[in-house]
Amino acid sequence: MNVFRLAGDMMHLLSIVVLLLKITGIKSCRGISLKTQELYLLVFITRYLDIFTNFVSLYNTVMKLVFLGTSSAIVYYMRYDRIIKLTYDKEQDTFKYLLLVAPSAVLALATSHVYTVLEVLWTFSIYLEAVAIMPQLVLLQRTQNIDNLTGNYVFLLGSYRGLYILNWIYRFFTEKHYRQWLVWTCGVVQTIIYCDFFYYYFLSWQNNEKLALPA
């Protein structure tokens, strides 16, 4: 494992910690898209089905369990916690699941490397992860007064994706036969989706103003 991969994973973990701190600390999930969170939960479930059959390292197994556990907790809080669910912007969070899930499923069936259940679901998770942030970005555009934690959450997630690209570049030059066009294409698409957000995030940081995305 190289330093980019580790840093990427830590950013990912940190983004989840920031989100959980926001939700449980101030008992509010304002500005957070439940749809994106549920899609991430689906991504983790479909990708980590190999948790018992494909042992890579203790680090991987623990991280998989952490991601599954924390994303389940976030969805649980937003859906069922008596106080927190009241702060969810349900009317604004209108992105259609099917718009993201259906194309991912079709593409997974069409392009899977091997046709086993695990492999098709893994491919599905790669496609779905690339676009799962979209409901969140749409919701951010609609939210006035985005709070710092929400802005930082999305920034950390975007950084995780960027660092993974550096990790792939590193692996491409240091490992034999490391050719993963599917993963790379999806990863680059996913990172491009964040570009607009990054632009406004840095602008607000530079001008010391509150983050706001133009509609």
Binding site: S57, N60, M63, H113, Y164, H177, Q180
Partner: peptide, 10 residues
């Protein structure tokens, strides 16, 4: 081997 390499990330 290819499978392992493809699936060793998170």
């Amino acid at each position: 081997e290819l499978y392992r390499q493809q699936h060793d990330e998170l």
